[in-house]
């Protein structure tokens, strides 16, 4: 049986990418380095992730290559070179992340991206919330997450000053409105959300480096707890309460609605742990504002996906589903503002 043409094209492309990847690795690690046990992780809408073993003499290490494959206009995501810098910064300060190994250069012919260490673990939220092997990880999740955030928020923001002028650092609400206007799909509920958020802005906080996408689904967890924090493409300089609010946003509870912090623990447990770990005192009203902001933002990310599906030549049933899922986030947004959901 012959493969359909598109499959053939895809696999030969992949052979070429792996060949270039091996050359790129040899350039940095020496001519004897070889790749083995190569697999492609297919999920991920805007990047290609390849896992491989690096064999060098008697040592063998599993690594991950991440390439940017889809460039969007009005993208809410940081360019790969900034993501790599953030990985380096986080790694240096003991925030658990995959060790950054090297960045691709132009003459690697691999586009923009980098290679980092592979960290074993699970990211799928439903498994983390339900499977028995994660019982202990669930118990310590809130304390671990709080400690990680305190460590991150304590980094001198001068070290991340390459983020100073991004849209999300300057004004996160205005950044979302600008993207909404670019997508051009009318949503009265989101317009209401923008209005409400603008009228109820929290007191201006002392800004720091925030992760920006710190939630259940972006953390690699094993039976001992959180092993690595992934997805640094939304990091910016801003209010640390934003990371607490996003973690507690309703969508990331995956049905465990009473356990606000990612479905793992209550808001109060998270706040207590954050303060106990040496974080600044939690502004509860600000966290509430950021949770509402979070429902709006998750709606916006779904609109981004359907926009890419309709206009960006990047089609899939999942992106089509995202378009219609927008209404669920609008429901959370309005019902939370109305005080009928917590």
């Amino acid at each position: 049986m012959s493969l359909p043409k598109s499959e053939l094209e895809r696999s030969s492309d992949l052979d070429e990418i792996v060949r270039r990847l091996e050359i790129a690795v040899q350039k940095r690690m020496g001519a004897n380095a070889t790749l083995a046990d190569i697999s492609v992780a297919t999920l991920g809408g805007s990047s290609r992730t390849i896992l491989f073993d690096l064999i060098d003499g008697s040592s063998r290490r599993r690594l991950v290559s991440r390439q940017e494959t889809y460039l969007m206009d009005a993208s809410p995501f940081l360019p790969p070179e900034m993501q790599f810098k953030l990985l380096q910064l986080a790694y240096k300060h003991g925030v658990p992340v995959p060790e950054p190994i090297f960045e691709f250069a132009d003459d690697d012919g691999l586009g923009r991206g980098h290679v980092m260490a592979h960290v074993a673990g699970e990211t799928l939220p439903k498994r983390l919330l339900n499977d028995s092997q994660y019982t202990h990880a669930r118990e310590i999740f809130v304390v671990q997450a709080a400690e990680i955030l305190v460590r991150l928020h304590a980094i001198d923001k001068q070290e991340a000053n390459f983020l100073d002028n991004t849209l999300d650092s300057v004004d996160p609400l205005q950044a979302q409105i600008a993207r909404y206007d670019y997508y051009g799909e009318p949503h009265p509920a989101l317009e209401f959300g923008f209005r409400w958020l603008d009228k109820h802005r929290p007191a201006k906080a002392v800004a720091c480096l925030v992760h920006g996408d710190f939630r259940n689904g972006n953390m690699l967890v094993n039976e001992h707890g959180i092993q690595a924090v992934l997805d640094w493409e939304c990091a910016h300089i801003g209010d640390p309460m934003a990371d607490l609010g996003w973690l507690c946003t309703r969508s990331w509870r995956f049905g465990n609605d009473e356990l606000h912090a990612g479905g793992f623990g209550t808001r109060e447990a998270l706040f207590d742990a954050y303060e106990a770990a040496g974080g600044r005192s939690v502004d509860r009203e600000a966290v509430h504002w950021w949770e509402i902001f979070g429902s709006m933002r998750w709606a916006m990310l779904n609109i981004m996906q359907i926009h890419g599906h309709l206009h960006g030549g990047r089609r899939s049933p999942a992106f089509a589903a995202c378009g219609r899922n927008t209404s669920l986030m609008e429901y959370d947004l309005l019902m939370t503002i109305a005080g009928r959901l917590d």
Partner: peptide
């Protein structure tokens, strides 16, 4: 007043996209 009207509007969209979402909430 607008908030209540918009909750009605969004609820009618959710009833098509994923009606179980409202029951769960």
């Amino acid at each position: 007043w607008l908030l209540e009207e918009l909750i009605g509007h969004v609820t009618s969209k959710v009833k098509v996209s994923k009606p179980s979402y409202i029951d769960e909430a």
